[in-house]
Simulated scan of single mutants.
Amino acid sequence: MIYTWTIKLFAGLPERLGTAQLILDLDQGQLTASELKSMIARENSDHSSLLSTCFVARNHAYVADGETVQASDELALLPPVSGGEELAEGGDKNMSDSPRFVVTSDIILTEEVLAKVIVPEHGASIAFVGTTREWTNGKRTVRLEYEAYEPMAVATMSQIGDEIASRWAGALCAIFHRVGVVGPAETSVVIAVSAPHREHCYEASRYAIERLKQIVPIWKKEIWEDGSEWKGHQLGPWNPIAGLTAE
Rank of each mutant, 00 (worst) to 15 (best):
residue 85 E to S: 12
residue 85 E to D: 09
residue 86 E to R: 07
residue 86 E to L: 01
residue 86 E to I: 04
residue 87 L to C: 05
residue 87 L to V: 13
residue 88 A to E: 05
residue 88 A to M: 02
residue 90 G to R: 11
residue 90 G to K: 09
residue 90 G to I: 04
residue 90 G to C: 02
residue 91 G to F: 08
residue 92 D to A: 13
residue 92 D to F: 08
residue 92 D to M: 03
residue 93 K to G: 09
residue 94 N to W: 05
residue 94 N to E: 12
residue 94 N to P: 12
residue 95 M to Y: 06
residue 95 M to L: 13
residue 95 M to C: 10
residue 96 S to L: 02
residue 96 S to K: 01
residue 96 S to D: 04
residue 97 D to V: 04
residue 97 D to E: 13
residue 98 S to Y: 06
residue 98 S to R: 06
residue 99 P to D: 09
residue 99 P to C: 02
residue 101 F to M: 11
residue 101 F to D: 13
residue 102 V to A: 07
residue 102 V to G: 05
residue 102 V to D: 03
residue 102 V to E: 02
residue 103 V to H: 03
residue 104 T to A: 01
residue 104 T to Q: 01
residue 104 T to W: 00
residue 104 T to F: 00
residue 104 T to P: 05
residue 104 T to S: 11
residue 105 S to Q: 04
residue 106 D to T: 00
residue 106 D to M: 01
residue 107 I to W: 01
residue 107 I to T: 11
residue 107 I to E: 09
residue 108 I to Q: 07
residue 108 I to T: 10
residue 108 I to D: 07
residue 109 L to V: 13
residue 109 L to K: 04
residue 109 L to Y: 06
residue 110 T to F: 00
residue 110 T to I: 03
residue 111 E to K: 02
residue 111 E to C: 02
residue 111 E to H: 01
residue 112 E to T: 04
residue 113 V to H: 08
residue 113 V to P: 13
residue 113 V to S: 07
residue 113 V to Y: 07
residue 114 L to M: 13
residue 114 L to S: 12
residue 114 L to I: 10
residue 114 L to E: 15
residue 115 A to E: 14
residue 116 K to C: 06
residue 117 V to M: 11
residue 119 V to E: 13
residue 120 P to M: 09
residue 121 E to F: 01
residue 121 E to P: 05
residue 121 E to T: 12
residue 121 E to G: 11
residue 121 E to I: 00
residue 121 E to Q: 10
residue 121 E to S: 11
residue 122 H to S: 13
residue 123 G to E: 03
residue 123 G to P: 04
residue 124 A to S: 15
residue 124 A to C: 12
residue 125 S to Y: 04
residue 127 A to S: 15
residue 127 A to D: 15
residue 127 A to G: 15
residue 127 A to I: 14
residue 128 F to W: 15
residue 128 F to D: 15
residue 130 G to W: 12
